[in-house]
Nucleic acid binder design. Structure first.
Lengths: 248, 248
DNA sequence: TTGTCGTAATTGTCTGACAATTCATTTGCT
DNA sequence: AGCAAATGAATTGTCAGACAATTACGACAA
């Protein structure tokens, strides 16, 4: 049963695609074992290197995992939320950094998405998530924090906010948007006044979520969005089109 | 300059990761040529197969492209929005189908996200996008349309709505959410009454967007969200936990 | 029963070879 | 000189064969 006699380009890519399609179509189900490399060689009538390169392509997308040994082989992988997070974040980060997406566009997207889960968060947040948010706010108030650490804490705060919606699909989608912004946010130098303002707004948001008032949550988040965009506009306007060396 | 002498597992994965990190860090910039396979062999002190498998992993993530010939080699790829779309859609689709995410959760996420760009769409939609929406509504009204074709048109409608926000980052993020829902939506059998109701709501949304009234757009979209969730609840409740064969 | 050994299956890696492709250079003809 | 064709070199794509590493399983002995 030789399958897939194709034409003129990159056999390993074609084989990978064939198997990927089979997984998407549901012809190969989770944890099912693929044929061994030797069998795939026969089936597609190619050498072993070619089959292996195809399998590595699939492994890179978390579609399969491999195991050595007698009962080993390649198995269809269950796409975990965690794997999907990582992929999303990598892709989003590269997308933003390689296409010189301006701060304002990215920021608008991020806050638009984030606002969509704020009301849900206000309804459903757990005490745990609330505690995380408070803890991050406290960290952000520490004097002597580097800008990078401040940004990292900011991301953690917003992830807790997003996770508060209790919808893993939402969390997954938002992960990319929130994390991918970090490199852009890192380009900003935060003044003491900036930090105070941001911490204040974070507190406002957290208070609203604790009180479970969706409207107030949304309003505070919107204020934060606006402040962030203004901050980006004033800090990044000088270096807008050129390379980014805000040294002098 | 032998780099990366590592320990006990999967050399090709480690090499791929090293190169990927270099790309993310910015040590390798877009369109820059990587060392040839032979050079990488020396640098990492491994065989050519190993290097090639590492490169295929990167190619599978659209991080590099390869070119044959004298001036060929592997080049850092610019992550295009289109590539990112595709990756997002594949990942999201598999994530939903493999983790038995229930219709309601997915639906909630999708409409929450979609509502976040509705106001922007109302402000910025182009005549083109408006026309696309009208055209899809018209298609959806055609009698004799299969459920699948109806769903496909639904997706096209919503993508036009999302694109109307004029923010490519938003469009990219939403692509996954909207497209990944399609298989779930396909499991529903749409009655004539369903279709009329949906077309009606689509028209309401489009009218609001044409009139550029954000509040009305949001309200109509929310009605559609609610109707969709109810529809899913009533149609899919019977087959909730078991396999999905709604044949009889 | 239990522990050890060997065998088979399978993936991971290396080496060497050749094919295909592409560019640069040289050669040859006008 | 100018242009076309042949040549060569560099590089990726593919194949074949070998060996190492890992794992499961059964056979055998204590």
């Amino acid at each position: 049963m030789k399958t897939e006699l194709d034409e003129n380009k990159d056999l390993s890519a074609q084989i990978a695609e064939a198997i990927r399609d089979a997984i998407i179509e549901g012809n190969l189900i989770v944890d099912q074992r693929l044929p061994s490399e030797a069998e795939l060689c026969e089936k597609f009538d190619v050498g072993r290197s070619t089959v292996r390169e195809a399998l590595k392509r699939l492994a890179a997308q978390n579609l399969i995992r491999t195991q050595r040994g007698a009962t080993g082989g390649a198995f269809v992988n269950r796409m975990s939320f965690e794997d999907a997070y990582d992929q999303q974040i990598t892709t989003s980060t590269l997308l933003l950094s390689m296409n010189s997406v301006d701060f304002e566009t990215a920021c608008e997207a991020r806050y638009a998405l984030e606002r969509s889960c704020a009301p849900l968060s206000a309804q459903r947040r757990t005490p745990d998530q609330l505690a995380t948010m408070r803890a991050e706010i406290h960290r952000q108030s520490q004097p002597g924090l580097t800008d990078e650490a401040f940004c990292a804490s900011d991301v953690a705060f917003h992830r807790a906010l997003v996770d508060g919606a209790g919808n893993p699909v939402l969390s997954y989608q938002l992960a990319g948007a929130v994390e991918a912004m970090q490199p852009l946010m890192n380009m900003i130098t935060y003044t003491q006044r900036d930090r105070e303002r941001i911490v204040g707004l974070h507190t406002e948001i957290t208070d609203a979520i604790e009180a479970q008032i969706p409207e107030q949550t949304d309003a505070s988040l919107q204020k934060l969005a606006q402040y962030t965009i203004e901050m980006g506009r004033s800090r990044l306007s000088a270096t807008a089109t050129g390379k980014t060396s805000p040294s002098e």
